[in-house]
Design a protein around this nucleic acid. Structure first.
Lengths: 256, 256
DNA sequence: GGCACCCTTCTTGTATACAAGATTTGCGTC
DNA sequence: GACGCAAATCTTGTATACAAGAAGGGTGCC
């Protein structure tokens, strides 16, 4: 993995490490983070940790409750819907501008990324496909030549990346469907018209919403069931039955 | 002005005060800010000041140069162009959603704001008109029912508000032209169609860009001229003539 | 047994002291 | 007089100590 040379101040390094941990899934959604523990774990003082956490709060990755605690963000179904909607707005515009302003360069990069995806699918390496997916959509924001749009992207879409890791439950068919979209977009950049972008891009993004929402619902059910189980066990140990409601539920071991 | 009760932590209060000072024009664009001076002036320690400055940096209102200093932002012509472009993208979407989702409430508020504007014009109170202008555009973001769009608005448009104060040079005709747009938009919300919004809103916003850019260019000329004057005075005192090139040029005294 | 209250503990908020880098100013030299 | 170098000063970066509020657990009362 990257972890490359790490840039600048301690605070930035801490922020990067924390963001990586959240995006990669090493830290669970909703998990409590204490400034002290992080400072100890990373062998720095609380000052840069606080700075980092404030930055991550601005990016929507953590929530700071004054005097109470700091927690990894935990999206609701509504938030996911709003984020996706917002993403469509920004990305549609970015793609359009990239098409108008950096078409040749963007087309070239998109083609390369699509090849990477092809390889990832052949290898059945879903992690590599996810990385390529991120790279694909980044092309628009890099090529659109508007720093505010780019900032908005990096700011809000750390959440998107985290959701992908935590909530993406690719079905067998899903990556192929998504891959078709990617190829279509590549072709439009190669030899199509700008007006063809929207009818592909918008549904492409909105489809991820269903995916995340479904997973989140499952996750919430699982959590509440597990809470019920715990309660039952605690309150009425004699009648406790070991039968589990969800057999296929991946057993999430406690975060490392 | 507000200054109302001020919320929460010292850091937030400091951030609010600083943002107000920048937006209102009390602090000049590009002016140097030292954490120490601010802390002394506001009678707090450097810690909350640092926090506040970092927040303001995220909002694009100040620029922190590591170990060197912190400065009020100073936009370039390109930045203004990008910001305006970005604003069109966001505001067009916000207006559309507000129209679809909160049409009645939005229409009512817009009508009220337009009345306020009418009064402001009658009173020739440009400051009141500016406030109403801000309120007018806020209606879209409040009514669009998407918290990410709203966040993006509050985050990026502190700059817009600051630009309005520092760079808006309303000509005689400009506010009337702008007012016509506002009335037209009000009417569309009252009894029009969504598709009519864009042809009015986009040019309406883009027009501000020309205004700001022109003022900025003048300002830059003025500054560089004044620098030349200063140099001339310093380097060649014998031939220095007290005649000033620009009589109304604000003499930049050193930071408070 | 259930409930309210208090106290303990843990969390973040703020102040201060020190460290390290960037900038500027002044001096010395050419 | 102009240029280069070095020291002094000013800036932010980091560490630590203390304060204040929130949350949870335990105890006493009803």
């Amino acid at each position: 993995m990257p972890q490359e040379a790490v840039a600048g101040s301690l605070a930035n390094r801490v922020a990067t490490q924390l963001q990586d941990a959240i995006v990669s899934g090493a830290l669970d959604l909703g998990q409590a983070l204490s400034e002290d523990s992080i400072a100890d774990a990373l062998d720095v003082s609380r000052t840069p940790v606080r700075q980092a956490l404030q930055l991550l709060q601005a990016r929507g990755l953590v929530q700071i409750r004054p005097k109470a605690g700091t927690y990894v963000f935990e999206p609701t179904v509504e938030q996911i819907a709003e984020l996706t909607e917002f993403r469509v707005t920004l990305e549609r515009q970015a793609a359009l501008w990239a098409f108008e302003r950096s078409r040749a360069a963007s087309a070239k990069t998109l083609a390369q990324v699509v090849e990477t995806m092809e390889q990832a699918i052949a290898d059945r390496d879903m992690r590599a496909y996810g990385r390529a997916d991120t790279a694909f959509h980044e092309v628009f924001f890099k090529g659109c030549d508007n720093s505010y749009l780019w900032n908005s992207y990096t700011f809000n879409f750390a959440q998107v990346a985290a959701l992908r890791t935590h909530l993406a439950a690719y079905t067998e068919a899903e990556p192929l469907r998504s891959f078709e979209d990617h190829k279509a977009i590549r072709d439009i950049f190669d030899s199509g018209q700008a007006s063809e972008l929207e009818p592909i891009l918008a549904p492409h993004i909105l489809r991820t919403r269903e995916n995340y929402t479904a997973t989140l619902r499952q996750r919430q059910e699982r959590l509440s069931e597990s809470r019920i189980e715990q309660l039952r066990r605690a309150l009425d140990p004699t009648s406790f039955s070991p039968k589990r409601g969800l057999e296929s539920a991946p057993q999430r071991e406690e975060t490392q």
